[in-house]
Amino acid sequence: MIDSRQASEALADIREIAHRVRQSRIYNLASLLMIMWGALVFIANAASFGWPRHAGYIWIAINVVGLAGSFVVSAFTHSRTGVRTFDLRTLMAFLLFFAFGLATCMLAHFGPRELGVFWAIYFMLFYTIAGLWVGFAFVVIGVGISALTLIGYFLAGNWFEPWMAIVNGGGLVLGGLWMRRE
């Protein structure tokens, strides 16, 4: 028979392992979405650099493709693990989050460069806040990409979009790969 101190230690061990398993599953599923969005953000920034007049349409198209892709990834992970990552509630949360960002952009009359910075930092704020609950990797990715975005805003000059393609798109892909290793 064991005493209550040993029982407490055993329960603490169980809680710790359960937490690590949950975090590992979140990282595994989120990383797929992150890699996909990273590739899309890379394409959108590169295309906006090549065809700046069509940047608005490019970003709308990329967001539609990204949402559809998120559903596909969700269906894929659901079939493998039984866990749904992107359901109707997630879509509603995304749309509300997006609507608030859109309203902010309209009220603030941002220029193209400020728009690029705003949306990147706005989404990274979401990552950072989510990371406070679900895992440190989200915080590192959110803060890291936000900082690099601001550096690009002040220092990248005419190469801002390519900078953002690498930093934001590439950053998300690398972040997703790092999460998969974790």
Partner: peptide
């Protein structure tokens, strides 16, 4: 202890996973 950890990890997953 190790078997407790193994079971704790597997029990944190949905049944059948």
């Amino acid at each position: 202890p190790l078997r407790l950890r193994i079971m704790a990890a597997l029990n944190a997953l949905p049944p059948g996973t």
